[in-house]
């Protein structure tokens, strides 16, 4: 049940986040100021669902972002999986209740995931240099949304349930059933 809820929230947050981003760009907001909600969900699960099921959820969020772009399938999925892995392995040592550490981790993770995305997809260097302002802008926007977004996710997933998943740290099978 917990695993199913995490899965549904992952799909919901990714699609809604992409739609909000898309709508904001359509009304004229610069791309640099559009937060990445799917990535925020990955940051969230890397703190609270440190298990192989969390890796699957990160992969799924990235895949939805890939699908929405209509181009290559896989680069965002790969970037999100590596980002998830990087944080979940050290999540025990980060005090997630602190807004500062959350913002800091989100900034680093957004920069990291964009870099991995460019390395997996084509033409990395020229894109990185031409759009680095957009990446930095996105990192800060996403990071400053994080302290507001995390309580909402805690409410949607009910914190105690998530915490128990973290404690179990089991496989995909053990969490779903």
């Amino acid at each position: 049940m917990n695993g199913v809820r995490l899965l549904l929230v992952a799909v919901f947050v990714s699609i809604l986040g992409l739609s909000i981003g898309s709508g904001l760009i359509a009304i004229g907001l610069p791309r640099a100021f559009v937060p990445e909600f799917a990535l925020l969900y990955v940051v969230f699960i890397s703190f609270y669902v440190a298990s192989s099921y969390g890796t699957f959820l990160a992969f799924l969020c990235g895949l939805i972002v890939d699908i929405s772009s209509g181009q290559l399938l896989g680069p965002w999925a790969g970037a999100f999986v590596l980002s998830y892995g990087a944080v979940s392995l050290i999540s025990d040592r980060i005090y997630v209740e602190s807004g500062f550490s959350l913002v800091f981790v989100t900034i680093l993770l957004t920069l990291f995931s964009h870099t991995v995305y460019l390395l997996i997809s084509v033409d990395p260097l020229t894109q990185l240099f031409s759009d680095w302002m957009v990446i930095v802008g996105k990192s800060f926007t996403t990071a400053f949304i994080a302290p507001l977004f995390f309580p909402l996710l805690r409410w949607m997933l009910s914190y105690s349930q998530v915490d128990s998943i973290r404690a179990r740290g089991g496989s995909v099978y053990s969490i779903i059933f």
Binding site: S19, S22, L24, A26, R31, S69, V134, I135, K138
Partner: peptide, 8 residues
């Protein structure tokens, strides 16, 4: 009604 939000 929308644009690609990823920027790429």
């Amino acid at each position: 009604i929308g644009a690609d939000p990823s920027g790429w």
